[in-house]
């Protein structure tokens, strides 16, 4: 028996919004420690790694490890049937071929359940090596989303160059070029609005706008985003899922020829 409950379905809605652009289907691996999802997009350019810890749920029970393959578009359809403040309970029997989403209104005057067919996805599990990154940037997630959106107007790629002075985002194309420089903030009172840079060595890499903009769909989850970069390894873009865990996106850089 698997059962996981969240007091408000909006968190699950936000998590789904954050991954549905990149993945059509995904396997949710459920164990007593929580729910894990790890999948590359079809073109093997990006990888999504989602961790939702069991102790972050309002109720969590997982008697036996189960992997639930779900179509994300179908999941989105079902979650649309829930109000943001409805309690959501995800339930599945061991060896089940369906998963049930139960929504309960706060007043307990409406209870609905939706059963969704599970899929056999046979996804590979990948080992992600620990990396000491040359640069780790923390900045407001809204600012990062704004920069990705603005620079996408200029070209298909965004250059991210990090030095101890700050981070420079740049793009160029037919209409011209754009540069946005973000400096480390000295005011640490408002942590959510701060920009911090931990730099061992300067790094400059180029990434596809389309993927960065997909990652920013996670913005509603967290006020801050963390960008980790080193030469010759994927960029890691991490958002915290408050109280539950995190979502990490890995993106292969563009290669100069």
């Amino acid at each position: 028996m698997f059962e996981a409950r969240l007091d408000s379905s909006v968190t699950l809605k936000k998590v789904l919004e954050a991954i549905k652009d990149l993945l059509n289907d995904a396997s949710f691996d459920c164990s007593d420690t929580g729910i894990q999802l790890q999948a590359m997009d079809n073109s093997h350019v990006s990888l999504v790694s989602l961790t939702l810890k069991s102790d972050g749920f309002d109720k969590y029970r997982c008697d036996r490890n189960i992997t639930m393959g779900m179509n994300l578009a179908s999941m989105v359809k079902i979650l649309k049937c829930a109000n943001n403040d409805d309690t959501v309970t995800i339930k599945a029997q061991d060896d089940a071929d369906t998963v049930t989403f139960m929504f309960e209104s706060k007043k307990q005057d409406k209870i609905s359940d939706y059963a969704m067919k599970l899929m056999n996805l046979d996804q590979e599990h990948l080992g992600i090596p620990d990396t000491d990154f040359s640069c780790v940037i923390r900045m407001p997630s809204i600012e990062f989303a704004r920069i990705c959106r603005d620079l996408a107007q200029f070209g298909e790629s965004i250059g991210i160059a990090c030095t101890k002075e700050g981070v420079k985002f740049s793009a160029s194309g037919d209409i011209g070029s754009a540069n946005v420089k973000i400096a480390q903030t000295s005011n640490f009172e408002k942590e959510e609005e701060s920009v911090t840079i931990e730099m061992q060595e300067p790094v400059a890499l180029t990434f596809a706008c389309q993927y960065l903009n997909s990652f920013t769909k996670a913005t509603p989850l967290s006020p801050q985003v963390q960008l980790s970069m080193s030469d010759n390894v994927p960029l890691v873009v991490e958002y915290t899922v408050p109280e539950l865990g995190h979502i990490r996106y890995y993106l292969a850089p563009k290669i100069e020829e």
Binding site: V45, L126, G127, P129, A208, A252, I255
Partner: peptide, 14 residues
Amino acid sequence: VTTQGRLDGFFTVL
């Protein structure tokens, strides 16, 4: 000219 890199090779298949 830049080409899009792939993730294959960065991760190990468990």
